[in-house]
């Protein structure tokens, strides 16, 4: 399997969510690294150079998922990882209404490559991850 060793980074402030999502990804033989906030995520991304990032949006900090995603895609600091696919994983329904739509593009923000609602369905998550890794 070509993706067998792909490394996935989960950035989420909810420890239970990190604990629950890890075995899902491991069941598909992915290597998992986690970070509990965007700041830690920022450091670990450069250190670990993951193949894909699962990113929560609403975290207890001003520097949220939107900002981190934008930084990954555009900032000089992230030049080496700028092509890493990012999937928003969030219970963001409450921010934008019935279904999530990334609105930041209107304000010049770079959006994610995909998004998925919490709680994630294992099959759905794996298939989206696989699709992005194949690109």
């Amino acid at each position: 399997m070509e993706n067998a060793k792909a490394k996935i980074m989960v950035i989420d402030d909810d420890p239970d969510f990190r604990d629950a999502i890890t075995p899902i990804l491991q069941s598909a033989l992915y290597q998992v690294v986690t970070a509990s906030n965007p700041k830690e995520g920022k450091e670990k991304i450069l250190e670990e150079k993951p193949d894909l990032i699962l990113l929560d949006i609403m975290m207890d900090s001003l520097f949220d998922g939107f900002s981190l995603c934008h930084a990954i895609k555009t900032s000089k600091d992230f030049e080496v990882v700028k092509d890493t696919p990012v999937i928003f994983v969030s219970a963001v329904k409450e921010i934008t209404g019935s279904r999530f739509q990334f609105k930041g593009e209107e304000q010049g923000m770079s959006g994610p490559d995909d998004y998925i609602d919490k709680p994630v369905k294992p099959e759905d998550l794996i298939s989206r991850v696989e699709r992005l890794l194949k690109k």
């Binding site: 969510f17 899902i24 919490k118 294992p122």
Partner: peptide, 16 residues
């Protein structure tokens, strides 16, 4: 609730 539901998904998916 999302955290609880996520654990359910893992257990029901046979990953635990």
């Amino acid at each position: 609730i999302v955290a609880i539901a996520q654990y359910f998904e893992v257990i029901l998916g046979g990953m635990a």
